[in-house]
């Protein structure tokens, strides 16, 4: 039998709702299986842990050719319609409703839950500097702002997953 996975290090690089959730679901799933997990937020992924932004993440309705309306098997949403004011707001509302039905928590609650489950949460120093942010801008679950070198050190023995 193949060696079971013992540790995962998940990089979150996108700040849309559909960009952040998969990483959180995978991190939580890892902890539930007894796998060590680390989350590293970088670039726009940082918005998933910025205190004033994390409750307002949205679904991207432009630049996603797989986006269909009103449901997954409906016709594709043309990019120019996706760009209309309110479309992202609307799609976000729809997705949040479906997420809640599956008993998946909102981002903030999910981050708290994952952190309580023992997952370490880090922000990327290069992005924090680029965006002129400080540790104070983040939710309390962010353990530390670390460099990419530290990220690799902390990921020793882990499978790195980039999302």
């Amino acid at each position: 039998m193949a060696e079971p996975i013992k540790k995962v290090s998940i990089v979150v690089s996108r700040g849309s709702l559909e960009g952040v959730y998969p990483a959180l679901i995978m991190a939580n799933g890892a902890r539930m299986e007894g796998i060590e997990a680390t989350l590293f937020f970088t670039f726009f992924g940082l918005y998933g842990v910025i205190d004033k932004k994390m409750d307002h993440l949205k679904v991207a309705t432009v630049g996603n050719p797989a986006m269909c309306v009103p449901s997954a098997m409906g016709p594709g949403l043309p990019t120019w319609i996706g760009a209309l004011p309110g479309m992202s707001w609307f799609a976000t509302g729809m997705m949040k409703k479906e997420i809640e039905k599956l008993d998946i928590p909102p981002i903030r609650e999910f981050i708290e839950m994952i952190h309580d489950a023992g997952c370490e949460i880090y922000g990327c120093k290069a992005t924090v500097d680029m965006f002129h942010l400080t540790k104070k801008d983040f939710c309390p679950q962010v353990d530390e702002i670390i460099s990419v070198g530290q990220f690799y050190e902390k990921s020793a023995g882990a499978q790195i997953i980039f999302t």
Binding site: D103, I104, P105, M113, D116
Partner: peptide, 16 residues
Amino acid sequence: IRKLTKESGVDTKELY
């Protein structure tokens, strides 16, 4: 696990 921690009265940390 969310329902479990919310309704059983045992929080995530304790559960783990």
